[in-house]
Simulated assay, not measured.
Amino acid sequence: MTSGAPPTLGILGGGQLAQMLALAALPLGVRAVVLEPDPQSPARLCAEHLQAPYTDPAGLARLAACTAVTLEFENVPVEALDALESRVPVRPGGALLARSKHRAREKEALRAAGAQTAPFLPIEREADLTGALTAVGGQGLLKTSELGYDGKGQRRVNSEAELRDAWVALGRVSCVLEGLVPFEREVSLAVARSAEGEVAFGPLVENTHRQGILRTSVFPAAAPEGTEARARDVARAVAEAWELAGLLTLEFFQLPGGALLVNEVAPRVHNSGHLTQDGGGLSQFEAQVRAVLGLPLRDWAPLHPTAMVNIIGTADGQQPDWAGIDALPGSRLHLYHKAPRPGRKLGHVNLVAPDLETLRARLDQLEVLVP
């Protein structure tokens, strides 16, 4: 694909997303280097693993020698990106990361880009609690502004007393209070953008959650006509306003009538996009690699109806029916090589079918096989 020295992709973070990014990079002639303090990081199996803190000078120097650097999750210290940005292309950059890792700043920036969100209020101090729940509609979710994911760091509140108790339980830290909205379904869509401004889109995917953690994703989404076009318009507007270089995933609430509210944003590949690994077509992981390294972009989506079911660690250690998964037509297992613990994402199963009716039937079978 290239002449001279092969390109290298630096990745901040070495979890399963970095593992799958590294695997997608290899067929393009690209080797990955990950900076990750965990000695058991999943990406160590298929990438050069720098086991060190994210701000380690020697580790950052090795990443600075790569062709470009990206990230696999938001909770990377912004200081690490600041130390790299004058030495190597970092995509997305520190300014976008600082915005997207803080929920209140993220929502303010989304609105500034023309996207709609649910009602919200930043909660920085105790005085901000007074009247806040009424202002967002009387029911809401209190979320920590940083660090929370997969249902962690948030509480549902229905009264001012519950709001105050929730804020104390979350540690009296910076939070955002989001008003609850009546939505018909949750959907997501990713956008990739090169440093030169070339833009491409992933598929519109329908998502369901269980206890705050993504359970299933299905393509195509059963959304009203025109929903994907509207999601693309919002994604393009955000990507351009934020000067994205890399990949950005937007999660939406689709309201009755088809309007879309942006719920959350991730400046990376996303769990709901894992189904693009199978079903033919480009995967989200190759799309991020291409956007970060400045390779040609094109839209990506499965060529057939495809679904994903997450494998989550259970409190009682219950295992999926591995033999049943293997025997299910169209199934493909992806494991992360992580030690099991309750609530931890251990892998996923992608499921491909020739038509949506067959996919739904096989998905019902798969739901029984995965606890």
Results as ranks from 00 to 15, higher is better:
residue 178 E to P: 01
residue 196 E to Y: 02
residue 183 F to Q: 11
residue 177 L to D: 08
residue 157 V to G: 06
residue 142 L to C: 05
residue 190 A to I: 15
residue 155 R to F: 00
residue 180 L to C: 15
residue 229 A to Y: 07
residue 197 G to E: 05
residue 212 G to E: 12
residue 145 S to K: 12
residue 147 L to P: 01
residue 157 V to T: 08
residue 193 R to Y: 10
residue 146 E to K: 12
residue 178 E to V: 14
residue 206 E to W: 10
residue 192 A to Y: 04
residue 202 G to T: 14
residue 221 A to F: 10
residue 208 T to L: 05
residue 232 R to Q: 15
residue 231 A to N: 07
residue 206 E to Q: 15
residue 163 L to M: 00
residue 173 V to P: 02
residue 131 G to H: 06
residue 172 R to A: 04
residue 130 T to S: 12
residue 205 V to L: 06
residue 135 A to I: 08
residue 183 F to A: 07
residue 155 R to Q: 13
residue 178 E to D: 10
residue 194 S to P: 02
residue 137 G to A: 07
residue 167 W to C: 01
residue 133 L to A: 05
residue 228 E to L: 08
residue 184 E to P: 00
residue 221 A to W: 06
residue 230 R to L: 11
residue 147 L to M: 15
residue 133 L to I: 09
residue 220 P to G: 07
residue 218 V to W: 03
residue 156 R to I: 06
residue 144 T to G: 05
residue 166 A to K: 02
residue 158 N to M: 07
residue 173 V to W: 01
residue 212 G to K: 13
residue 183 F to H: 10
residue 209 H to S: 10
residue 224 P to F: 05
residue 154 Q to D: 09
residue 145 S to H: 07
residue 204 L to W: 04
residue 205 V to R: 00
residue 153 G to F: 12
residue 215 R to G: 01
residue 181 V to P: 05
residue 129 L to W: 03
residue 156 R to F: 11
residue 229 A to F: 03
residue 209 H to Q: 13
residue 150 D to Q: 10
residue 131 G to C: 03
residue 229 A to D: 14
residue 157 V to A: 10
residue 224 P to H: 05
residue 206 E to C: 07
residue 229 A to G: 09
residue 151 G to Y: 08
residue 150 D to L: 07
residue 197 G to H: 09
